[in-house]
């Protein structure tokens, strides 16, 4: 646990620095102040780098101590929260990135970058809380209908983040995150598809937190995909039986060719689940959709029978620890109800 937490800190070190830079950039954009702040920023960055190289003085220890207080308080909060049941699986719909960019007068696409940083923080909190599975609805099949320039920006961003994960492969391995992409990856351009496959292969052996990234995904497409899978499976089985019978007894007619067993062909919901993208993963316990919207937008429609729906008004880049804590408190409150319903 200690070792992994340390790795998390390393993993976040880059993202926190990015966050700081992005925040400064935001200030620059908002206030139209340029050179003086830029110089200040450069100084700060140099100072930070220099600080790491220098030996720590007493002020360094004090600032380190003060810096560790929020982490300590957060861990205390998680310790208290862990007295109640902690969800196994939390799903997120990352909604509100574009609205965030509009509200803060940011360049198109910057909202998604802020959203990515918020995602890293939330993933860290989930890990610290002991949530085993985290699912994010990153890109819907319906999102392909967006304007070409926005779509291109999103594709570039996805590819960039995948490459970052691949370049930090050792760190991801040490931390133990297993990343799985759920959805129809064939709809993506080849570089993204290949990068996603590489990330899945690189993290397949990890047994820590599982991050399920739903891309080119919709729940109805998942159901159609499952029916297709079942159809293929059944077809292969019939073909196998027919071949077996022909080899075993040439005189006996092949039963499956005419149809009595075809008429009786039946599929259960468990059969369908075996062929869904979510096969092998537990159903989410909580679904958090940021941005205040209350619909599922074709996400985990099948898997959300006993899932607590939580809709904080905060836009995704503004999502914070408190939204997660609030959702978990709600979950702890209603869990006995869900347990009772599951037993029925």
């Amino acid at each position: 646990m200690q070792k992994k937490s340390w790795n998390w800190n390393r993993f976040l070190a880059c993202s926190e620095e990015n966050m700081r830079n992005l925040q400064l950039q935001k200030l620059l954009e908002r206030n139209s102040m340029s050179r003086s702040i830029e110089i200040e920023r450069e100084r700060e960055t140099d100072g930070t780098k220099g600080c790491c190289k220098m030996e720590k003085g007493s002020s360094g220890y004090i600032s380190e101590f003060l810096g560790s207080i929020p982490t300590f308080l957060r861990r205390c909060l998680f310790q208290v929260l862990s007295f109640g049941p902690i969800p196994h699986h939390i799903a997120f719909i990352l909604d509100g990135n574009r609205r965030y960019a509009r509200i803060h007068h940011l360049e198109a696409g910057m909202g998604h970058r802020y959203g990515f940083l918020a995602l890293l923080s939330i993933l860290k909190y989930c890990y610290e809380l002991g949530v085993k599975y985290v699912t994010i609805y990153a890109f819907s099949i319906d999102n392909f209908k967006r304007k070409p320039d926005e779509l291109q920006y999103l594709m570039d961003l996805i590819l960039e983040k995948l490459e970052v994960v691949l370049s930090e492969e050792n760190m991801v391995k040490q931390y133990g995150v297993k990343i799985d992409f759920l959805g129809n990856l064939k709809l993506f351009p080849e570089p993204i598809r290949k990068a996603a496959e590489k990330v899945m292969a690189a993290t397949a052996q990890n047994n820590g937190t599982v991050l399920l990234v739903c891309v080119a995904y919709t729940s109805t497409d998942d159901i159609v995909h499952a029916i297709q899978g079942l159809y293929k499976e059944k077809q292969a089985r019939i073909q196998q039986t027919a071949e077996g019978k022909q080899m075993g007894d040439d005189d006996e007619p092949v039963e499956c060719s005419g149809g009595s067993n075809l008429e009786e062909f039946s599929v259960s919901s468990a059969d369908l689940e075996r062929h869904m993208y979510f096969a092998g993963y537990p159903d989410p316990d909580i679904l958090i959709r940021s941005g205040g919207e209350t619909r599922l937008s074709n996400f985990i429609l099948w898997q959300s029978t006993f899932c607590l729906l939580n809709n904080p008004k905060a836009l995704w880049p503004d999502i914070s620890l408190w939204h997660l804590v609030w959702a978990i408190l709600q979950y702890q409150r209603v869990r006995p109800f869900f347990e009772k319903k599951k037993r029925l």
């Binding site: 075809l262 008429e263 062909f265 369908l272």
Partner: peptide
């Protein structure tokens, strides 16, 4: 949905 899947599979296999 499972019933619909059965219907579809049997219809098209037949």
């Amino acid at each position: 949905i499972a019933k619909a899947a059965s219907y579809l599979c049997s219809k098209y296999m037949k």
